[in-house]
Nucleic acid binder design. Structure first.
Length: 359
DNA sequence: CACGCGTGGGT
DNA sequence: TACCCAAGCGT
């Protein structure tokens, strides 16, 4: 059988699709505005791009609104205490992003006069800004001809050219293809169009090829197998770890909290006292590792799945006197937990011990 | 280059 | 249900 002749993919075709089908997002300006030279606020683009790293648009929207309302400029963010930023980021995950966000704001304020660098290279030198984010901010906020490659673009490109080399080995080739396709005009719209296409049409499962502006150019569609791309290495099985968490409430209605060290898992975030999280040993955890002696009561287990392991936390609760001391940490009113930098796993642990803690 | 690093939504 | 995975970065 003969295959239908494919046309070369064209940036102009994608931009025309984007003019009609772009998503309206809080950090964007519309393509018609951008066409008149109205560029978005670099602070908004940078903030949204960092939040969107490995995170869905739906999860980011509320956090973006909260951050912009509370810290309207990068200078405001630089002036904020880092613990306030961590608390505002709590629940969004990948907390190194929040620490680097603050470091980046500090650098922009103190070393760049409060303005973001307007080139890919200048942006790339800042904390938390890598290959993707530097290209995205340069293209979207500064109209630079930078080629953006994220997970969406990888999927679109891998299908357009039926690239069968598995990721991440295929990235250099994919980058070549994106560079060749990125136009000198409207590079920011082109980048956003590629990502919108990947998010709404060229989806991982059941792509809507009939609606795709590239459906006359797509080698994977011609092979009748777009879902096969991109090819990825097999995943490893997720190990299980086990630990115990201790929720102490004193007579004044305060709970004992601690701050985790800045590095590693949940770095710089707030926690209730816990044991180390070790490779699973069958059987229940005991109270031997409690922060102090008390009438600890077992109150169930919390299961929480991280990226690289599953955690099974045995939860213990104790009521103690108001004058109880602890070697480290502080006593926080249960009514003020919403203002703390508590990651989701810790909120689940506290809610297990105090079911109405977050009402 | 491989790994550590969160969470919630979609299927 | 049990996956999959989403606008990646740092080491």
């Amino acid at each position: 059988m003969t295959l239908k002749q494919l046309t070369l993919p064209s940036a102009a075709v994608l931009l025309a699709w984007y003019d009609r089908h772009h998503r309206d997002l809080p950090w964007r300006v519309s393509p018609s505005m951008a066409a008149r030279g109205i560029l978005p606020d670099p602070y908004h683009i940078w903030l949204s791009e960092v939040m969107l790293q490995q995170t869905t648009v739906a999860a980011v929207k509320a956090y973006f609104a909260k951050f912009v309302s509370r810290w309207p400029t990068v200078g405001d963010l630089a002036a904020a205490p880092v613990d306030d930023v961590m608390a505002a980021w709590a629940g969004l995950g990948y907390y190194a992003r929040a620490r680097n966000l603050k470091k980046c704001a500090d650098a922009v304020a103190s070393e760049h006069g409060g303005r973001f660098p307007d080139t890919e290279e200048g942006l790339r030198a800042l904390p938390g800004i890598g290959d993707y984010t530097s290209a995205a901010v340069a293209a979207i906020a500064f109209d630079r001809q930078a080629a953006v490659m994220d997970g969406n673009v990888e999927r679109v490109i891998s299908r357009l050219y039926a690239i069968s080399t598995p990721l991440p080995a295929a990235k250099p080739l994919m980058k070549q293809k994106v560079v060749a396709l990125t136009p000198p005009v409207r590079p920011g719209d082109f980048a956003q169009a590629m990502m919108d296409l990947g998010a709404t049409i060229c989806t991982p499962k059941r792509p809507a090829c009939a609606l795709c502006p590239f459906n006359g150019s797509c080698e994977a569609l011609q092979l009748h197998d777009p879902e096969h791309f991109p090819v990825k290495a097999a995943k490893k099985t997720k190990p299980v770890r086990q630990g115990a968490a201790f929720v102490a409430v004193n007579d004044a209605g305060k709970i004992l909290l601690r701050r985790r060290i800045d590095s590693g898992l949940l770095g710089g975030m707030t926690e209730v006292p816990t044991t180390a999280w070790t490779a699973r040993i069958d059987g229940d955890m005991t109270v031997d590792a409690a922060p102090f002696a008390a009438n600890w009561q077992a109150c169930g287990t919390v299961v929480h799945v991280f990226t690289h392991f599953e955690l099974r936390l045995s939860i213990f609760r104790a009521s103690v006197g108001a004058r109880s001391k602890s070697n480290d940490g502080w006593w926080e009113p249960v009514t003020n937990l919403d203002a703390q930098a508590l990651p989701t796993v810790m909120k689940k642990a506290i809610a297990q011990a105090i079911p109405r803690a977050f009402d």
